Amino acid sequence: MKKQTYSCGLDAAVDVVGGKWKALILWALHSGALRFGELSRNVSGISEKMLIQQLREMESYGLVHREVYHQVPPKVEYSLTEFGHSLNTALIPLGDWGELHMETIEALPRP
């Protein structure tokens, strides 16, 4: 497999957090570990299949840790790694910008 090269830091960051759901999953996990069902309820609108796919991708990037507890019934929790926390911290100003300009963005015509 060929190593990915980036033209700038923003290119690398968007590759890791790109898509509709990853930033929302990061935000849902900011306060601590969540089980799959809790995470699904916190990220409204995401399908179970998409949540599983996004969590797997985020785990492969090292953003999310999946902890499996071997008990009956089985228990799995997802939490942010230090790498995931650092990305969440970097996204806070973007969220603030979105809050500040939400009305303008909502009023924009959609293609």
Rank of each mutant, 00 (worst) to 15 (best):
M1F: 04
N88V: 12
G9Y: 07
H85L: 14
Q4S: 10
M50Q: 03
F36E: 01
E59A: 14
R35S: 13
Y61R: 11
Y61F: 15
D15Q: 08
G19N: 10
R41Q: 07
S31T: 10
P93M: 07
G32T: 04
E82C: 09
L26K: 05
W21G: 08
I92R: 09
G37D: 06
L51K: 04
P74A: 13
E99V: 13
M102Y: 02
K22W: 05
D15N: 08
K2S: 12
I25S: 13
K20Y: 13
K75M: 11
E82S: 14
V68G: 04
G19F: 09
W21K: 05
T104W: 02
L91K: 03
H101I: 02
V72L: 08
E103Y: 02
G45F: 03
G84R: 07
V72T: 14
E48A: 12
V72D: 01
V43P: 04
G37M: 05
G45K: 10
R110W: 02
G32A: 03
T5M: 08
G84T: 10
E99S: 13
E57C: 02
G32F: 01
A28E: 01
N42K: 13
V68F: 11
N88P: 00
L55T: 00
V14K: 13
P93T: 13
D96S: 15
A28W: 02
Q53L: 05
T5G: 07
N88C: 13
H70W: 11
Q4N: 08
L51G: 06
D11H: 11
E67L: 09
L100P: 00
K22I: 15
L91R: 01
L39C: 11
P109C: 03
H30N: 06
A28N: 09
H101E: 02
D15K: 07
F83Q: 10
V64L: 07
T81C: 12
E67M: 06
K3E: 14
L24G: 07
E57S: 10
L51P: 05
Q53G: 00
W27T: 12
K20L: 14
G9Q: 10
E59R: 15
K49F: 04
M1I: 15
M102C: 04
D96T: 15
K75I: 15
A33E: 01
P109Q: 04
E77M: 11
S31F: 01
V17D: 02
H85A: 12
R66V: 08
D15T: 15
Q53P: 00
Y69V: 15
I105A: 09
V16R: 08
G37Q: 04
V68C: 09
S31C: 03
P109A: 05
P93D: 07
E67T: 09
L108Y: 00
S40Q: 14
K22M: 12
Q54T: 07
N88G: 10
